[in-house]
Amino acid sequence: MRKAKTWLPGFLLVLPSMILVGLFVYWLIAKNVFTSLQRSTNFVTDKVVNPGGYHNYTQLLGSGDYQHALMNLLVLTVVFMVGTMVMGLLWAVLLEKGVGAEGVFRSVYLFPMAVSFIAAGVVWRWLLSPAQGDGAIGLNQLFIKLHLDGLQSSWWSSPSRFSMAAMAIPAIWQLSGYVMALFLAGFRGISEDQREAARIDGASEWKIYRHVLFPQLSPIALSALIILGHMSMKMFDLIYVIAGPNSYKAAVPTTMMWTQLFAQSNPQAAAVNATILLIIVAVVVVPYLVTTSRSERSR
């Protein structure tokens, strides 16, 4: 242990941030958990709304509305993650060997990242508007113009259980460029000698990707998956703008939390919902953070 005299100034420099993060992250999480365990009654009819304790959790987890929202979240997350990873990797593969005007392609693919979900959502609400045939606007109208009438869809408001897949389209549009940038940097970090060696051994281009390049990108792929996964769990703005906060069809836990808090004036249920969401995200993120932190210390 070094002498306190050496490290103390460093500690003091971080102290304000420690207090702020402690208060605004950890203390507020604790308060939210506390709210989620409270009993509440309707103040007009005196009927019990939330029985209190863990019953609040079993009540929400057992409700059909919440299970519907979780199902939607699952569909959204799977389609979003697969779509974004595939698109991002494809773009990176197309660009990685260096093509003319690479910078232009990269900038275009990445530009949606700079736009807010709200701004993107407003355009995509128009693009994904459900009307078909004569009154169709957005993509449906474009399909009619291209004589591809069969492709028309009511998108996220179609009766299918998997209609949330359509909500993933704008999200894929926004984030594929990010995944491309990560993979592109990864490809460029692999020395050319390795490809050269494989080529001399007679490996085909596909084999080089499959056995030499892709395995070395797996740490990047893992980071990307975790970032995308946690973004998907938290996705709110896009759905709020495209479907509206009170849409049952497109409900996910985050929009449902808004409805619970404001439309139903039920902060306890909203707090339960938010706590479960935090737990889901933590299950994904904490192991990642802990292993990253360990591997760093051992270096």
Binding site: S17, V21, N32, L277
Partner: peptide
């Protein structure tokens, strides 16, 4: 402390919004 900070980057802000 650094790891605890980083976790704060990933939390869904819904989990602090009501008390905030």
């Amino acid at each position: 402390v650094f790891t605890l900070f980083l976790f704060g980057m990933f939390i869904p802000y819904q989990a602090v919004m009501i008390p905030l």
